[in-house]
Amino acid sequence: MSDQRFIIEMGMGNDQYGQDYTKAAARAIEDAIRHSSIPMFDALGLDHTEMRVQVTVAVQEPEKVDCAKLTQGLPRGRAEVKAVFGGLNVTNPDSGNVLVMASAAVEAFLAKQA
């Protein structure tokens, strides 16, 4: 039986002063999941651990994202986080400070229901 995606949420987050890609990614993930409520688990008698959660975060320097830390912060399901190239770095021309912007897609999958 193959998994079927039943939800996808997108979010954006940033770190304005620390150039912390993990912090920006965590804020993007939080932005995405804060808009979701999934009452079907209670309605159908499903355990949320049956859900596979796949998170993709995009930043300019994906190798600087601590994916394990982000995975630990997800509240439900069996989660996996991967970082890819994307997002945006914006440099303040006056101070040289770099603002890091991340985008995230949070997808949830379940085995096809009969």
Rank of each mutant, 00 (worst) to 15 (best):
V98N: 04
V65H: 03
A105V: 02
V90S: 13
L88H: 13
M12K: 11
Q54N: 13
G96W: 12
A104H: 00
K112Q: 12
D3C: 02
A114V: 12
D15Q: 07
A25C: 11
V106F: 10
N14Q: 11
N89T: 10
G73K: 00
D31L: 03
G73P: 00
I38L: 15
V59R: 04
A105P: 00
F6A: 03
V90R: 14
I33P: 01
M12Q: 10
E50Q: 14
T22H: 10
D15N: 13
V53S: 14
A111I: 06
G86T: 00
A108M: 15
M40N: 09
V98C: 08
A25N: 05
R34A: 12
E61Y: 07
Y21F: 15
G11P: 04
S2Q: 11
S2I: 06
L44C: 10
I7P: 02
K69M: 13
N97A: 15
L110W: 06
H48S: 10
L110P: 02
R52H: 09
T71I: 15
R27K: 15
R34S: 15
V81D: 00
Y21N: 07
M40Q: 11
Y21I: 01
Q54R: 15
D47E: 12
A28D: 00
M12L: 12
R27D: 00
E63M: 06
A102C: 01
G73Q: 05
G87F: 02
Q60F: 04
T49H: 07
L88G: 00
D15Y: 05
M1Y: 03
Q72K: 13
D47L: 03
Y17R: 11
E63W: 07
V53N: 10
V59C: 07
Q113M: 14
L44I: 12
P93W: 09
N97Y: 05
P75S: 08
A58T: 01
Q72V: 01
Q113S: 04
A111Y: 05
R52W: 03
R78P: 01
V106R: 09
G86C: 09
Q54S: 14
F109S: 02
L74W: 07
K82T: 13
Q60H: 11
V84F: 05
F109K: 01
Q16G: 08
I29Q: 07
M1D: 13
M51A: 14
D42T: 15
Q72N: 08
E50M: 14
K69D: 06
F41V: 05
M10P: 03
D15C: 09
I29G: 03
A28W: 01
Q19T: 06
V81I: 03
G18K: 11
G87D: 10
L70K: 05
R76P: 02
V65W: 14
A43T: 12
D3L: 15
L46S: 05
E9P: 01
R34P: 02
G86P: 04
K112D: 11
